[in-house]
Design a protein around this nucleic acid. Structure first.
Lengths: 210, 210
DNA sequence: TTTATTTACGAACGGTCGGTCGTTTTGTAG
DNA sequence: CTACAAAACGACCGACCGTTCGTAAATAAA
């Protein structure tokens, strides 16, 4: 956008629209996202959106890409800065919780909301969301496997199971926090910490983590 | 309804409507529930619904009550038949997983979906859903506390934390099963089983459970 | 400066939404 | 049988939805 706030054309307009669409889709739902409302809050006309995306569905898919990009930049990449092994697994878990604990996004996690919304609605969007979830679980499993490989966790540890538990604790903390309060984040941290302590070859590794 | 399938008036009509509305609201969302579509599939007129509920919101609240009733009858009550202590906590966890594992309800768990849908939408419905979630967590915590009181779990065990982990594992298994497959149910059972074994005063109690 | 293309606009479309109204049907109580 | 109230109906309302279209403005290329 220009210095006076007006939108420029082309790519910059597109990212500006997606920046605005993501929080709207997070709170109102990816399907409940209203193109009219989106255009109004951007100060552009509804029909102008169709110059950039051929349909609402195309825009929704772009929102998903945008959300993944943001998630990668703000959560995964910083978490990956931690040393390999169980420290990195913990860093990703902790970053995710911190991200939502500091109320960065109203409406909770976009991907969790969208997955729930489209669980029973076949179509292109559901397939895309399913692929994102599969990728994410593969990533978590790889973190767990690495923690086993470097010797932080006992050989024979169920990497996929550990990834599943990490994901469950994280998602539910974000989901239930608006109702049950920030205690859910403490529970999510404590539960995984306890479990890792049981699985660790040297429990003292865990004591130095938050 | 009469022997030829037509609806009678009064209470029986109301429960017939709710029986039909609950799966629709589970798949399309409590807000995405369409009164026109609901009336069509029931073979009645849309305006006829307003003879029983003054507004869509009133019907949505009735759907929540109906879902809770069904949940109590089909999941909680059978689970409570188990002996006190850790066996009962496990029975409730297991019943919940079995309920959805056998594909009883398309669209997953109504309450989980609705909670996600209304997390960022203040209003009467959100308040009601929040109350339901609070009640449910209180119930789970009570089960955990009881398991401690009867001596199944170590004194000093974090009952609220255990309840939180139970809920997280159960919800996410149902949520992710459509994408990741039934392996999520195995993970949810295995993870809680492992955790309970760590917390148990006598681990042999756990071996006799599934 | 002229030309071509992208970008944005306002108006309008068909469709669905929740909701209202007057009327008719239906069950039940007297 | 009569009278009354609950229940169901069809027609209709205004609002909003995603989408299209013809056109005008803005940019980039010539």
């Amino acid at each position: 956008m220009t210095e006076d706030g007006r939108l420029l054309r082309g790519e910059r307009t597109r990212t500006a629209v997606l920046d605005r669409a993501l929080p709207l889709a997070t709170t109102a739902g990816l399907d409940g996202l209203s193109l009219g409302q989106l255009a109004d809050t951007l100060g552009i006309s509804k029909s102008g959106l169709f110059a950039h995306w051929r349909s609402k569905e195309a825009l929704q898919l772009a929102v998903i890409d945008h959300a993944r990009q943001q998630w990668t930049d703000e959560v995964i990449r910083p978490g990956m800065a931690a040393p390999r092994g169980v420290r990195r697994l913990w860093a990703v878990h902790d970053r995710r919780l911190s991200f939502y604990e500091s109320v960065r996004l109203p409406g909770g996690c976009f991907f969790a909301n969208a997955n729930f919304e489209y669980n029973a609605r076949p179509g292109v969007i559901r397939d895309r969301l399913a692929a994102e979830l599969t990728d994410w679980m593969t990533f978590l499993t790889r973190l767990a496997t690495d923690a086993i490989d470097v010797g932080d966790l006992r050989p024979g540890t169920d990497a996929a199971g550990l990834a599943y538990e990490t994901e469950s604790l994280g998602v539910c903390a974000v989901m239930q926090a608006p109702v049950l309060g920030p205690v859910t984040f403490r529970h999510a941290r404590h539960a995984l910490h306890e479990h890792l302590r049981v699985l660790a070859t040297d429990p003292t590794i865990l004591t130095e983590l938050t």
